[in-house]
């Protein structure tokens, strides 16, 4: 749990370029699975399917999550099931949107 919290904190540095907020508060990260040995799987989405920025976002997530102490390997999986919805945003972000 502690490692997952650290990864979530690190991923707040990854800003969606179009919406201007971090991907955690935007609700784009669906799940973070930490295995024994520090192998991490991040299940996430992007606001638009097939967007040219998608690959850069996954690379950024890999880099930020990989920089957290205790993480040995990062696997980022993109999913569009369910597709991202504004309803996934944190309430405080939705208010300022």
């Amino acid at each position: 749990m502690e490692l997952e919290a650290g990864i979530r904190a690190a991923l707040r540095d990854v800003i969606d370029p179009e919406l201007g907020h971090n991907i955690i508060d935007l609700g784009m990260v669906y799940d973070i699975d930490v295995s024994t040995g520090g192998a991490v799987t991040v299940l996430m989405t992007t606001t638009a399917r097939f967007c040219p920025a998608s690959a850069f976002l996954t690379e950024a997530v890999t880099a930020r999550a990989g920089s957290v102490s205790g993480v040995s390997r990062v696997d980022v999986q993109l999913t569009y099931d369910p597709p991202w919805s504004p309803d996934f945003m944190a309430p405080e972000i939705a208010l300022r949107f």
Binding site: D13, V14, P17, F56, E59
Partner: peptide
């Protein structure tokens, strides 16, 4: 601006602060 951002700043995401497209 979006294509320019992708070209110049997308590779820096997660490694350094980046501006917004706007």
């Amino acid at each position: 601006p979006f294509l320019t951002w992708l070209e110049c700043f997308a590779p820096l995401m997660g490694r350094a602060p980046t501006p917004r497209v706007q």
